[in-house]
């Protein structure tokens, strides 16, 4: 039983996480179906995204779709090869096959990544598939250092962002004029903290006061997410962190309230009392009458014997 519960918890967390990490519009590049050699197989379109999270893992996601009766449908189970620089076996980073939504995910293995340059080129290619025409898609991104820190003062709560990237000499330098959005993670999406994005200053920094009154979980925890979205040079950068800056959720202590609409176990006490009193009263009298009838029968026997 508890195993099942745990598996479920796990499934849920995984699915929540997948949707949160990879879904919201991170597209960087999209290939049109190639119009090369016609083998009669249907063509696909590949959308390749680069996503870096918490300054740590580089993740490539390729979404493969195909045109069916004028709508794009996900291609499930197609295998996608991810390369760096150019297509070739020596440049293969890994292979992944697409899920139900047509998404193939690859966490770029750091050891295979050639660090000769600060710019990377990634290619997602579907090759020699039995059902679909070959297709590939390529994106270029630059190395970056995107960090969010959370600082709590006596009366202030600040979100600090710093974005740096290697300059011509390869030393880290701040990057200005990059739009960063701040969010709070909610169950079904990211809640933007402001209507307009913030922009990094000449120090590559942003400092924002975290607003009060945003609900967190029962401990007040919430997840703050900073994002650089679809940047032409850096791709998608994301930094998220959990902190107890939310208003703690007070779970209704009367959740088992005795109401007319509650379950039978939580029926209002007055109702239980009234109905049982009436039941006992009336059925007590009925039982008494039945007993009296029994006495009639007994009296009848006495006389007869």
């Amino acid at each position: 039983m508890s195993t099942i519960r745990l598996i479920r918890l796990f499934t849920k967390s995984l699915l929540v996480s997948i949707s949160l990490c990879f879904l919201p519009g991170l597209s960087v590049a999209q290939s049109e179906p190639s119009d090369s050699a016609d083998t009669g197989k249907p063509e696909t379109s590949i959308e390749l995204m680069y996503n870096e999270a918490n300054n740590h893992s580089k993740v490539l996601t390729a979404t493969v779709k195909t045109n069916v009766k004028d709508t794009y449908e996900a291609v499930k189970g197609i295998s996608v090869n991810f390369y760096q620089k150019e297509v070739g076996p020596e440049n293969l980073l890994g292979t992944s096959s697409s899920n139900d939504k047509g998404v193939a995910i690859l966490v770029v293995p750091e050891d295979k990544l050639s660090k000769t340059s600060v710019d990377y080129t990634f290619i997602a290619a579907s090759e020699n598939d039995a059902k679909f025409e070959d297709n590939q898609e390529e994106i270029s991104v630059s190395e970056s250092d995107f960090v969010m820190t959370l600082e709590q003062g006596d009366s202030s709560r600040q979100v600090l962002i710093k974005l740096q990237a290697p300059d011509a000499n390869g030393t880290m330098a701040p990057v200005a004029e990059v739009e960063v959005r701040l969010y709070v993670q909610r169950l079904f999406g990211l809640l933007a903290l402001s209507v307009d994005p913030e922009t990094t200053d000449e120090n590559g920094e942003i400092s924002v006061d975290f607003p009060a009154g945003i609900p967190g979980d029962s401990a007040g925890n919430l997840i703050i997410v900073a994002k650089v979205e679809e940047h032409e040079k850096f791709g998608n950068l994301e930094f998220q962190r959990k902190i107890s800056w939310g208003t703690p959720l007070i779970i209704d202590p009367n959740k088992n309230r005795r109401e007319l609409w509650s379950s039978r176990a939580n029926a209002p006490l007055y109702l239980i009392f009234i109905i049982n009193t009436m039941l006992i009263g009336i059925w007590g009298v009925i039982a008494y009458i039945v007993y009296e009838v029994f006495k009639i029968w007994k009296l009848g026997r006495q006389k007869a014997s």
Partner: peptide, 21 residues
């Protein structure tokens, strides 16, 4: 051996083998 980065319910970023996906 292939890892993927995910968010646990507690908001931690964790790496999990892709097999679990």
């Amino acid at each position: 051996g292939e890892k993927v980065k995910l968010l646990s319910p507690e908001g931690e970023i964790v790496e999990i083998d892709i097999a679990y996906l």
